[in-house]
């Protein structure tokens, strides 16, 4: 194998019009990707620019996403903006777990593992929440490595806490989220 040369800057690569992304996505695909991951309310112009697509077709895709309840429209400001309904995404994720090959017992076991992990962090750092752990990062007695480790654990903790909510929801609503064939079987 030959040696790896010094890689180019990313911006050099992304300027090209024949990128992998443009080869494997359509403009409508990219609008949907952008719309579902907005971190703040955005205009059609912003979404079109981020998705590298023209305004009118972007507007049509966004209208469909609003009609489907994936995006919310806000017309109260000087510009109409759009924002994804992240609650819907959380329910979709719980439904995906329900539809997977895992049993409710497996989900319950994993839920216990995640809760145990959080209990261990609480005991290890003597705190009750990720933000309390972050507050200890300012402790001057800690090494740079220890501070970095605590920030990393705080992020993992927060992520795990959100994951626990989704897995708990899937377990709690196991019957309600059952695919229709399961419900039909249960009803017979």
């Amino acid at each position: 194998m030959k040696a790896h040369p010094e890689p180019l800057c990313m911006s050099d690569a992304s300027d090209s019009g024949d990128s992998l992304m443009s080869a494997h996505t359509t403009g409508a695909d990219r609008v949907r990707m952008v719309a579902r991951q907005l971190s703040e309310p955005r205009t059609v112009n912003w979404i079109a620019s981020e998705a590298e697509w023209s305004h009118e077709p972007t507007k049509r895709v966004i209208k469909r996403l609003v009609d489907d309840g994936i995006l919310r429209r806000d017309e109260s400001g000087s510009h109409t903006t759009y924002y994804p309904d992240y609650r819907q995404q959380a329910i979709q994720e719980a439904t995906r777990l329900r539809d997977s090959d895992h049993s409710v017992e497996e989900l319950t076991d994993r839920l216990a593992e995640m809760n145990d992990q959080i209990s261990e962090w609480k005991a290890e750092f003597d705190v009750e929440s990720p933000n309390q752990l972050r507050a200890t990062v300012a402790d001057t007695a800690l090494s740079a490595e220890a501070r970095s480790h605590r920030r990393e654990i705080a992020r993992q903790w927060e992520r795990l806490a959100h994951r626990i909510e989704i897995v708990s929801f899937a377990i709690r609503e196991w019957e309600f989220l059952a695919p229709s064939t399961d419900q039909a079987t249960a009803g017979n």
């Binding site: 579902r36 991951q37 971190s39 309310p41 919310r72 429209r73 806000d74 109260s76 400001g77 924002y83 994804p84 309904d85 992240y86 609650r87 819907q88 995404q89 959380a90 979709q92 994720e93 992520r159 959100h162 909510e165 989704i166």
Partner: peptide, 13 residues
Amino acid sequence: MSVPHPGGDPNAR
């Protein structure tokens, strides 16, 4: 008053 942004976790999906 602006429409409240539907909450939830942007990491869920």
